[in-house]
């Protein structure tokens, strides 16, 4: 029964990941690029590039999500795949939110342009991700050292 439950959980979370990392962003970006007559426009967007890397890293994130969420609780393999998934999430966010560039330029038609540089904000978010990676590495060590006790508790449930 445990295997079935884990599979179902894995599929549910993969579905959520596919929705939030692939379906919604792809739909949003496709709609955004097709709208005409906005009072401002993006200047440096490479549409094909963004959609490609969104899809590529979204697929990786969803695949690793399935492995992670279908693994037993507090298992070593869950810890390892959780760590890999955080790293993939970093790559995904880099290609998606920041498009590899931390300066966003909006053209205001007939007036000029407006530039927003969020490089400092990116550095702090990346620092937070580093802390998350440290936590995942700690989890792996914890699950490995205490694996007998964790297995006993899991068998009892």
């Amino acid at each position: 029964m445990g295997a079935v439950k884990n599979m179902v959980r894995g599929f549910i979370f993969t579905g959520v990941y596919v929705l939030f990392t692939l379906a919604i962003p792809l739909t949003l970006f496709t709609l955004l690029f097709s709208i005409e007559g906005l009072p401002f426009e993006w200047e440096q967007i490479d549409q094909h590039n963004i959609l490609f890397w969104l899809t590529a890293f979204g697929l990786l994130a969803s695949g690793f999500a399935f492995f992670k969420y279908s693994s037993p609780k507090q298992s070593i393999r869950k810890g390892i795949f959780a760590l890999i998934q955080v790293i993939i999430n970093c790559l995904y966010l880099w290609s998606y939110k920041f498009s590899g560039a931390s300066e966003i330029k909006f053209i205001i038609i007939d007036y000029g342009f407006f530039t927003l540089d969020i490089s400092q904000m990116i550095l702090i978010y990346m620092g937070v991700y580093f802390l998350t990676i440290v936590l995942k590495i700690y989890d792996i060590f914890d699950y490995t050292i205490n694996r007998e006790k964790i297995r006993e508790n899991r068998m009892k449930e």
Partner: peptide, 13 residues
Amino acid sequence: YSIGLHSLAITLE
């Protein structure tokens, strides 16, 4: 702005 998290530049051409 925002404790240096955001740097803005507005240009009138």
